[in-house]
C-alpha cells in the first residue's frame, strides 16, 4: 500500500533514532510548528543537507533534536550567533533558527536585534508562548502586564513588547506573525521566510498551558487554542496583492478570515491576556543582504589591489 504524503514526510524528516512521542507536553503547539516547518521545507524542495536548523535552549529549542537536518542545539540565547558563523562560512546553506521568546528576546535579545540590523540571510522562527516554559514559568519579555508567573505571583509589573515590532524596528527585511491555530497560513509564512533573501523573522503565537495557562486560569490546550483563534486578525500583505500573505479566503476554519490593514492593530494588545493581535506578513522589503554586500566589498578590494599592482609596474 502506498503511503500518504503526510506519512512520507514523517518518515523522511523525523529522526528515527529519537524517542517518540516527543518530550513536549500533551497539546503543546511546538509539535504543530515542527509539522509546518517540515511541510514548508518540503514544498521549497530543499534537500536535508542544504538545511541547517539551529536552536538555543528551552522547550522550543528542543525542535532540532527531532528533525533530520544538519542541526545544532546551542546555548541559551545563542542560536543566531552560531547560525551567523555558519552562514558566513557556508553561505550556500539555508540557515533556520528556532527560538523561544525568552531565548530570542531575553538572554538573546542583543544577538536578535543586531542580526536583524545586519540583514544576514537567516530565518528566525520564534515561538512566543509568553513565558519561560522549560524552567518552570518565570516571566519573559513577552509576558503580559498583570499576568501571573512563577516570578510574578502577584501579577506582572512589567510590560510585554511585541517581537514582530522589535524586528521591524531593528531592520529585518521580512517580518511575519502566525499562530499554531492557523496552520495552513503558518506553512506559507514559514515558506516565505525561508525563501526571503535577508533576515526573516516569523513570530509564532503559541501557548504554554502547563506553565502559563494553569497559573492564569486560561484552561487547557483546547481552550488556549480557541483563544488564539479568536484573538488573531489577519492583515493584508504589504507586498504584492495576491501573494500568500493575502490568503484570507474564508472557508477552511484554520485560515484567517477577517482582513484588516497593517497598522490598524495595536501591538500593545499583546501586553494583555485577551486583546486582538495582527497575523500575516507585517514587513517585506528588499535590501542587499550581508552576504551580497560582503562579496561586493571583496570584489572591489581585489580590483583596487590589482590596480595598485599595475600602477607600480
Amino acid at each position: 500500500m502506498k503511503m500518504e504524503k503526510v506519512e512520507q514526510l514523517r518518515h523522511y524528516y523525523l529522526r528515527h533514532d529519537k524517542k517518540f512521542p516527543h518530550v513536549w507536553c500533551p497539546g503543546c503547539g511546538n509539535g504543530i510548528i515542527l509539522g509546518s516547518l517540515i511541510r514548508a521545507i518540503d514544498k521549497i524542495g530543499l534537500s536535508k543537507d542544504e538545511v541547517v536548523l539551529a536552536s538555543g535552549i528551552g522547550c522550543a529549542g528542543r525542535m532540532p533534536v527531532y528533525a533530520d537536518f544538519n542541526t545544532l542545539h546551542t546555548t541559551h540565547g545563542r542560536a543566531l550567533t552560531f547560525a551567523t558563523g555558519i552562514k558566513l562560512a557556508r553561505p550556500e546553506l539555508n540557515l533556520i533558527t528556532v527560538m523561544g521568546d525568552g531565548d530570542a528576546t531575553g538572554i538573546g535579545g542583543n544577538h536578535f536585534i543586531h542580526a536583524a540590523r545586519r540583514n544576514l540571510n537567516l530565518t528566525a522562527i520564534i515561538i512566543n508562548n509568553q513565558i519561560y516554559g522549560m524552567t518552570g514559568g518565570q516571566y519573559s519579555p513577552t509576558t503580559p502586564y498583570g499576568a501571573k508567573a512563577a516570578t510574578a505571583t502577584g501579577g506582572h509589573l512589567e510590560h510585554a513588547f511585541s517581537i514582530a515590532d522589535l524586528a521591524v524596528t531593528a531592520g529585518a527585511s521580512f517580518v511575519a506573525r502566525g499562530t499554531v491555530y492557523h496552520v495552513p497560513h503558518l506553512d506559507k509564512l514559514i515558506e516565505q521566510g525561508i525563501r526571503k533573501n535577508g533576515f526573516a523573522v516569523i513570530e509564532i503565537m503559541a501557548y504554554c498551558h502547563t506553565q502559563f495557562g494553569r497559573r492564569n486560569k486560561m484552561g487547557d490546550a483546547v481552550t488556549m487554542m480557541e483563544k488564539l483563534r479568536d484573538r488573531a486578525v489577519a492583515v493584508k500583505d504589504p507586498g504584492a496583492a495576491g501573494s500568500p500573505g493575502t490568503a484570507v479566503a474564508a472557508g477552511a476554519s484554520d485560515t484567517p478570515g477577517a482582513a484588516a490593514s497593517a497598522g490598524a492593530l495595536d501591538s500593545d494588545s499583546l501586553d494583555t491576556l485577551d486583546g486582538k493581535f495582527a497575523i500575516g506578513v507585517l514587513t517585506d522589503v528588499e535590501k542587499p543582504d550581508y552576504i551580497a554586500e560582503y562579496a561586493r566589498l571583496r570584489a572591489a578590494s581585489r580590483l583596487n589591489a590589482q590596480n595598485a599592482g599595475n600602477a607600480g609596474k
Binding site: 500518504e4 517518540f20 512521542p21 497539546g27 503547539g29 509539535g31 504543530i32 509539522g35 487554542m225 484554520d254
Partner: peptide, 13 residues
C-alpha cells in the same frame, strides 16, 4: 484539521 493540528503526528487522513 486534525491531521495538521495533532502535535504528536498521530493522525493520518
Amino acid at each position: 484539521f486534525c491531521e495538521l493540528h495533532c502535535p504528536d503526528f498521530a493522525i493520518t487522513i
